[in-house]
């Protein structure tokens, strides 16, 4: 077990170097002078531009820039972004917001997706199953941004149930509307995965055995069918958490959520290599850890799975 975890963590190193190198190079290759772009038609004195350029090492070749970035990263000093704000501080501001949003969205899709999926799977072909299948197809077919705008307009503007945007001081309540939008699409996938898995396992031998033992119906469903059906669902949710933490750029944009997606979008617009790559570095870690958690959950869900052989 420990060896498994260690091995997985060691894999982080090549993944990390690979992604940061690639992203850093892509930002480096973006056309245009990012410092000149800070100012627009009215350019400041050349000395200001040149000083900023050397301050951010933009006058250095690519390998020097990337090397400096790595050095800063390992000394836990991410440096400043082009507006002079420390990058570490802005990461500390945006990640908690996106984490709240991601957890909320994940909770919505997991709870409702699994619950609806189990009901639909148990009574396959029934009216609930048919309704839910059609409804989930509709949800999958509608693009997120359409859903976002519709929810914003209906619940935010017309009904006034929630604030249409999040803005400053994001909390669980104000993030609920974007979380629902974000969770809905994956909710449909979770539902369909659970449904398929449950209906497949319903006829498994161990289920018949459990029923024959005289176990109550809820016990059979929850302890035997559901637990064994969760493996594909958990895999999907784990991968999804990483995606959600990467910030839903579109959804965060529509609801003005001051999170990772918005920050990343701004940084890309400004060609701010260090900010972009710092965010990506954290995301790589999030992906690795969430995938590791998923793998560990497998053993808990299905004791037949063992890590050390």
């Amino acid at each position: 077990m420990v060896r498994f975890i260690l091995r997985r963590l060691l894999q982080v190193i090549p993944v990390f170097i690979g992604t940061t190198l690639l992203v850093y190079y892509m930002v480096f290759a973006l056309p245009g002078d990012p410092i000149a772009a800070l100012f627009g038609d009215r350019q400041p004195p050349q000395a200001v531009i040149d000083t900023l350029r050397s301050q951010y090492h933009l006058d250095e070749p690519f390998w020097v820039q990337y090397g400096l970035f790595l050095k800063n990263l390992f000394t836990f000093n991410l440096g400043n972004d082009f507006t002079g704000q420390p990058i570490a501080a802005s990461l500390a501001r945006v990640f908690p917001v996106t984490a709240m949003l991601a957890i909320e969205a994940l909770a919505i899709q997991a709870i409702f997706g699994v619950a609806f999926g189990v009901f639909a799977g148990l009574r396959r072909g029934g009216w609930f199953d048919s309704t839910v299948l059609v409804a989930s197809l509709v949800v999958i077919a509608v693009p997120t941004f359409v859903l976002g705008f519709v929810f914003q307009l209906v619940f935010g503007v017309q009904l006034g149930w929630a604030k249409p945007t999040v803005g400053a001081n994001a909390d669980w309540g104000s993030l609920l509307l974007p979380a629902v939008v974000l969770g809905l699409v994956s909710f449909a996938y979770v539902l369909r995965l659970t449904r398929a898995s449950v209906s497949e396992n319903m006829n498994a031998d161990y289920v018949r055995t459990a029923t024959a033992k005289g176990l109550s119906r809820p016990r059979v469903v929850l302890a035997h069918i559901l637990r064994n059906s969760l493996i594909p669902v958990v895999t999907y949710l784990g991968a999804n958490l990483g995606g959600l933490m990467g910030g839903a750029i579109v959804t965060e944009g529509i609801f003005n959520v001051p999170g990772v997606g918005n920050k990343l979008y701004q940084a890309v617009l400004r060609s701010e290599g260090p900010t972009i790559v710092s965010i990506v570095s954290v995301l790589v870690l999030v992906f690795v850890v969430s995938n590791l958690l998923v793998d560990l959950l497998y053993a808990w869900l299905d004791p037949r799975i063992r890590y050390d052989q």
């Binding site: 914003q152 307009l153 503007v157 604030k163 945007t165 803005g167 400053a168 944009g253 003005n256």
Partner: peptide, 18 residues
Amino acid sequence: FKFYTDPGPAYTDLQSDN
């Protein structure tokens, strides 16, 4: 001053007096 990265959400906020 509330910061918006896009004028769209601000317009929606104005429509609902936020």
